[in-house]
Design a protein around this nucleic acid. Structure first.
Length: 426
RNA sequence: GGAGAGGUGGCCGAGUGGUCGAAGGCGCAGCACUGGAAAUGCUGUAUGGGAGCAAUCUCAUCGAGGGUUCGAAUCCCUCCCUCUCCGCCA
C-alpha cells in the first residue's frame, strides 16, 4: 500500500512513477477523497471534543452535588443529545470516505524503484548476467523432462489427473526422492547462509493475503476453502511475511531472515493452454522460499544478497541460468524492484523462470502493519520486506531431468545431491 | 462439537458507568548519589489520525465489530482467540 501522506504531498511524482508500470492507474480520486475526508475529520473531531466536554461537565456537577434529575443536568443532556445527532450524520460519512480511500489504495500497485528500468513489457527486461554456459550440453535430442520423467517412472501425470485435475503430478520412487532431496539441499544451504527455517501454515486467511497483496486484486488466482475464511497459500511469502503482521519489532531483532519449504497452490487462471505439459505450470508445486524483514536503509544490499543466495543453489547444481532485471512494465504488483532467475531448459532451447527475487520496500509492511522501533527513538517505522524463491522445486527437477540427461536416457545425479539420494544415476 | 473461565499498555496486574489512555509493580531511558558499580531516590516512558511554522491542541484505540447512555475498559448483542474439563481424532 502506498503512503497516503506521500500521495498528498507529492501527487505528480507518485502519478509519474506509477505510470511507468503496465496498466492504467489514476491517483486523482484518492487525492480528492482524502481532501474531503480530512475536512470532515477536522469538523467531526471538534464536535466530538465538545461532546466530551459536556460529558465531563455532567460528571463533575453530579460529583459535586448537583441533582442528577435536576434542571441543570437535563439542560446539559439536551445539548449532548444535539451534538450526538450531528455526529451521527458526520461519523458514517467519514467512515465511508476512509473505507473508500482504503479500498482504492489497496488496488494501487507499488511505485517502481527509481533504478528499475523503464519498459512496457517483458520484452524490455534487461539481462544482467549469464552463468554456466560451459554446462550447456551440445547434445541433440534431449528429451523434454516430462518424457524422460515418465520413461523412468518418476512422473505420473495420468493418475494425478484422475485423483485431482489436470496440472497435477504424482511423483513416484526416485522422482519423489529427488524432490525431497532438492528441498533438503536447498534448506540446508540457506540455513548455512543464516536463514532461520520455518514451516508455517499453508492455509492462510484473507487478512494475510491482503497483507502481502494477493488480495483484493488477485482473488481468482488462489484456491479458497468454501466453508472458512481460509485459502491455500500461493507462496510461502504469504504465511512467512504475515508471521509478523501487526507487530512492532525491536530494531535490534532486524534483519529477520527466514527460509521455508511449503507446497504452493495456484489456480493459474488466465494461463489456460500455456505450459500444459510437464512440471512447469502446476496447480500444486513445492517451493523453498526466502523471506526477509529488514531496516529500510539496508534493503538494497539485502536484496542483492538474497539474489546471491538463490543463485547459489543453481550454481551448486551446475544449472546454467541468467538473471533478468525486470522492467517497470513487468514487475509484480507489490514489487519496487525485481530480479528473475531463469534456468536453461535444453529441450525447449530457452531459459525458464525458476526464481523471482523482489524488494517490496514498505509496500507490504504498510498493508500488513509490520513496524520496527528503535530504542530511545520516538515512533515507529515500517520494515522493508523482501522475498525470493530459492528455488521452485518442480522447475529445478525439470531442469535436472534435462540438463543431466545422458545419451542412454538415464539422469546423472548432481554432485551436491548425491549425499541426499545416495546414488549417482537415476 | 458440548460445558465453564477469560482476553486491559513492552510484560505482570488493578479497575463493573463519570474528570480513565487507564492505579501499582516489573522492565527500559535520563538525572542525582558513587572513585566506579550495585542498592537507593527523582523524572520520564503506548500507537495511529487530524489541525498548526512551532510550542501545542484535539480525536480514536482496554481482542474485533455493533448497540444502550450526556458519558462505556466497565452494561447488552454478534464474532474471533486463549485456557480448563468432556467428546472426537492424525
Amino acid at each position: 500500500m502506498l503512503d497516503l501522506k506521500l500521495i498528498r504531498a507529492n501527487p505528480e511524482k507518485v502519478q509519474e512513477l506509477i505510470n511507468r508500470r503496465h496498466g492504467d492507474y489514476n491517483i486523482q480520486p484518492i487525492v480528492e477523497l482524502d481532501r474531503a475526508s480530512r475536512e470532515l475529520e477536522t469538523n467531526r473531531s471538534q464536535l466530538s471534543a465538545q461532546g466530551n466536554e459536556i460529558g465531563k461537565l455532567i460528571g463533575q456537577k453530579i460529583a459535586s452535588g448537583s441533582n442528577p434529575q435536576g434542571e441543570e443536568i437535563a439542560q446539559l443532556k439536551t445539548e449532548g443529545n444535539e451534538i450526538k445527532t450531528k455526529l451521527s450524520e458526520l461519523e458514517p460519512r467519514e467512515k465511508e470516505l476512509k473505507a473508500e480511500i482504503e479500498a482504492l489504495l489497496l488496488e494501487l500497485p507499488n511505485l517502481p524503484d527509481e533504478s528499475t528500468p523503464i519498459g512496457k513489457s517483458e520484452a524490455e527486461n534487461i539481462e544482467i548476467k549469464r552463468w554456466g554456459d560451459e554446462y550447456i550440453s551440445d547434445r541433440q535430442n534431449i528429451l523434454p523432462h516430462w518424457e524422460i520423467g515418465e520413461k523412468l517412472g518418476f512422473l505420473d501425470f495420468k493418475r494425478a489427473v484422475k485423483v485431482a485435475q489436470s496440472r497435477f503430478v504424482n511423483l513416484v520412487g526416485a522422482g519423489a526422492a529427488l524432490e525431497r532431496a532438492l528441498i533438503s539441499f536447498m534448506l540446508d544451504t540457506h540455513i548455512s547462509a543464516g536463514y532461520a527455517e520455518v514451516m508455517p501454515p499453508i492455509l492462510v486467511n484473507s487478512d494475510s493475503l491482503q497483507g502481502t497483496s494477493q488480495l483484493p486484486k488477485f482473488a481468482e488466482d488462489s484456491f479458497k476453502c468454501s466453508n472458512d475464511d481460509l485459502w491455500l497459500t500461493p507462496t510461502a511469502e504469504v504465511p512467512v511475511t504475515n508471521l509478523y503482521r501487526d507487530e512492532i519489532i525491536e530494531a535490534t531483532e532486524l534483519p529477520i531472515h527466514h527460509c521455508a519449504y511449503t507446497p504452493c497452490f495456484r489456480r493459474e487462471a488466465g494461463s489456460a493452454g500455456r505450459d500444459t505439459r510437464g512440471l512447469i505450470r502446476l496447480h500444486q508445486f513445492n517451493k523453498v522460499e526466502l523471506v526477509k524483514l529488514v531496516a529500510p536503509e539496508t534493503s538494497e544490499a539485502e536484496h542483492q544478497a538474497l539474489l546471491e543466495n538463490a543463485e547459489a543453489i543453481l550454481q551448486a547444481l551446475k544449472l546454467p541460468y541468467r538473471i533478468l532485471e525486470l522492467c517497470t512494465g513487468d514487475i509484480g504488483f507489490g514489487a519496487a524492484k525485481c530480479y528473475d532467475l531463469e534456468v536453461w531448459l535444453p529441450s525447449a532451447g530457452m531459459y525458464r523462470e525458476i526464481s523471482s527475487c523482489s524488494n517490496f520496500k514498505d509496500f507490504q509492511s504498510r498493508r500488513a502493519n509490520i513496524r520496527f522501533k528503535q530504542a530511545g527513538k520516538k515512533g515507529t517505522e515500517y520494515v522493508h520486506t523482501l522475498n525470493g524463491s530459492g528455488l521452485a522445486v518442480g522447475r529445478t527437477m525439470a531442469a535436472i531431468l534435462e540438463n543431466y540427461q545422458q545419451p542412454n536416457s538415464t539422469v546423472k545425479v548432481p554432485d551436491v545431491l548425491q549425499p541426499y539420494l545416495k546414488r549417482e544415476v537415476l
